[in-house]
């Protein structure tokens, strides 16, 4: 049986997810025994449009990128969005919370119209996406888990419960107890609460858990006498495109 052909593509983003693949180090050699990489601009010169699985990093931020995304969709049997920018718009969506014209003028001054851009969005708003690997960046273990599922034709088991579960398992002290604001209670788990473990709070980069209990989250804030305004700002960091408008 021939190895499945896989390709990597990037749009507006930091390329940290493709670097996560490179950072598999020795384990990447094992992955290469099971797949054939036919396009990976960041790491190889060769390119082919004949591929089975496309991994796409980055957000769509301009009309011009839609055609390229649609071409990839046409060529690939399976499309996988990797990282927060591709799954939900990620940090790029922060530019969506203020008027676009203001944002454009702040960065490019009087030349602002020369630089094409629109609302930053996950690629799922432009093309059909078969699988999502969440996180900023995605974790190596979840990427490998999804690749294994693709190769064996099974559904990857991606958590759909709040980060607090991971955080408890990691043995962390709840950051609310320290008077900090955290979006963990409504964020999809699956990263072992790595940021809290390193002394930060959960920033929400894996996106909202399905059916998040936002009201209960606000009650937690009231209990700890924390500001809802600050929480709203925190939620905008990664949830702008996922929260209901208004």
């Amino acid at each position: 049986m021939s190895k499945p052909k896989i390709a990597f593509f990037d749009f507006a983003g930091c390329e940290g997810d493709q670097l996560t693949v490179v950072n598999l180090e020795e384990a990447l050699l094992d992955v290469l025994e099971h797949v054939e990489i036919v396009s990976f601009r960041e790491a190889m010169k060769e390119h082919s449009d004949d591929y089975d699985i496309a991994f796409i990093e980055g957000s769509c931020t301009r009309v011009a990128d839609e055609a390229r995304l649609k071409d990839i969709r046409k060529n690939a049997k399976i499309v996988v969005a990797i990282g927060a920018c591709a799954t939900s718009g990620g940090i790029n969506a922060l530019k969506n919370i203020r008027p676009l014209e203001t944002v454009r003028k702040e960065v490019y001054g009087e030349n602002w119209k020369d630089y094409d851009t629109y609302r930053a969005r996950g690629i799922g708003e432009v093309i059909d996406v078969d699988y999502k690997v969440y996180g900023c960046p995605m974790t190596q273990s979840e990427f490998v888990k999804v690749v294994k599922s693709l190769l064996t034709g099974t559904q990857p088991d991606i958590p759909n419960y709040p980060m607090c579960v991971d955080c408890k398992q990691a043995g962390n002290v709840c950051v609310f107890e320290k008077g900090q604001t955290c979006v963990g209670p409504i964020t999809r788990a699956g990263c072992d609460a790595c940021c809290v473990t390193e002394g930060a709070t959960c920033w929400g980069c894996r996106g909202l858990v399905n059916d998040p209990n936002v009201d209960a989250h606000k009650e937690v804030l009231e209990k700890y006498n924390l500001s809802v305004d600050e929480l709203t700002k925190r939620m905008a960091t990664y949830f702008t495109n996922e929260l209901p408008k208004g």
């Binding site: 931020t61 960065v107 930060a200």
Partner: peptide, 19 residues
Amino acid sequence: APRYFEAMVIGQKWDMLHH
């Protein structure tokens, strides 16, 4: 594709900028 970071951080608190 331009990403507009300098505009994204306007209105954000000091403890968010490095993130």
